[in-house]
């Protein structure tokens, strides 16, 4: 409880015991079971969640009810509908648990308090957002410029631990393919290798 969060934190930004205590007093821990929602579209996203254990996904629903996964979050990752969190507008994404999970959560008011009153927290947040921005650029380029084969292969290379834990149709959704297309892509890759 809290330890994975602080391991992640101190790898990026070392903390004194006092700073750690201050930050911990603003965090909250939550267990969530497989298939439970952390957030449903239309509600305001009130927290950023860090995954200590387990796996969650964030997705939008199209008019036909199709799911479009924009992010997976396994151990050591953060997940939130950031637009809703920052603006307090209703969320456009859903977040649910793919596995039983243990989370460390921070609310908007605590997040704001620590950004103002704890410079190390600000540094940590800046590093997180920078990392997320770089990943987003890479994902965008892959989506608009790469071949289907390379989209799939780069997902498998980047996130082998996720690929092992989620069903194929979710991987298809994440890289923007139908499950049928993904099957064809995987067959093509297999036959090229063979």
């Amino acid at each position: 409880m809290y330890s994975a969060y602080f391991d992640n934190f101190t790898k990026k930004v070392p903390l004194t015991p006092e700073e750690r205590e201050l930050i911990q007093s603003h965090l909250s821990v939550k267990k969530i079971r497989k298939k439970q929602y952390l957030l449903q579209e239309g509600d305001v996203c009130k927290s950023i969640a860090f995954v200590e254990k387990g796996m969650l996904r964030e997705y939008s629903l199209d008019e036909q009810g199709g799911e479009h996964i924009i992010q997976f979050a396994s151990e050591g990752w953060f997940i939130s509908d950031m637009y809703s969190f920052i603006t307090a507008e209703p969320a456009t994404y859903n977040i649910d648990a793919i596995e039983d999970s243990e989370l460390v959560m921070i609310s908007r008011s605590s997040h704001d308090y620590l950004l103002t009153n704890c410079p190390k927290y600000e540094t940590f947040t800046l590093q997180l957002i920078t990392g997320a921005y770089l990943a987003m650029q890479k994902r965008l380029n892959s989506t608009i410029a790469a071949s289907l084969e390379s989209r799939y292969e780069s997902f498998m290379a980047l996130y082998p631990h996720i690929a092992q834990r989620v069903p194929q149709h979710m991987i298809a959704s994440y890289i923007g393919l139908t499950p049928e297309t993904l099957s064809r892509v995987r067959r093509r890759i297999a036959s090229n290798k063979g």
Binding site: S28, K30, L38, L39, D43, V44, C45, K46, S47, A88, P90, M105, S107, S109
Partner: peptide, 8 residues
């Protein structure tokens, strides 16, 4: 506070 409702 967790993911709480907007005050509709």
């Amino acid at each position: 506070m967790l993911f709480l409702a907007s005050r509709q």
